[in-house]
């Protein structure tokens, strides 16, 4: 079952299936590009940073907990501990067995 990382319960582990932008977001990007905003969009760069930190498709990721008031998620991946903003985490799709 493919779920966004934010949907995982504390302690649950999933395998990343995608960290790329969804179609909807691509449209949003294009819309913004029309507004002559900088072409180099942050979302794209964030996706790059996520993969640089080891969140690549096929990787196991465990949600440890999330900060209160819809704060960032604490995850462990490849033996390191990361904090990821909730918006970004919502774009990471994981396959989880339930």
């Amino acid at each position: 079952m493919d779920l966004p990382l934010t949907a995982l319960k504390n302690g649950e582990t999933g395998v990343i299936t995608s960290t790329d932008l969804s179609l909807e977001e691509e449209q949003m990007c294009r819309h913004r590009a029309k507004k002559r905003w900088r072409k180099h969009l942050m979302t794209e760069r964030c996706a790059k940073r996520l993969s640089d930190l080891g969140l690549t498709p096929g990787t196991k990721v465990t949600v440890v907990k999330s900060a209160p008031f819809h704060g960032p998620l604490e995850v462990t991946v490849r033996g390191s501990r990361l904090a990821i903003g909730r918006g970004m985490a919502g774009r990471i799709l994981v396959d989880v067995e339930r």
């Binding site: 905003w37 900088r38 903003g85």
Partner: peptide
């Protein structure tokens, strides 16, 4: 200010 907000992506080292 034009531009997109960056989100937090940070390592919490031991």
């Amino acid at each position: 200010l034009p531009g997109e907000p960056t989100e937090l992506i940070m390592e919490m080292s031991d």
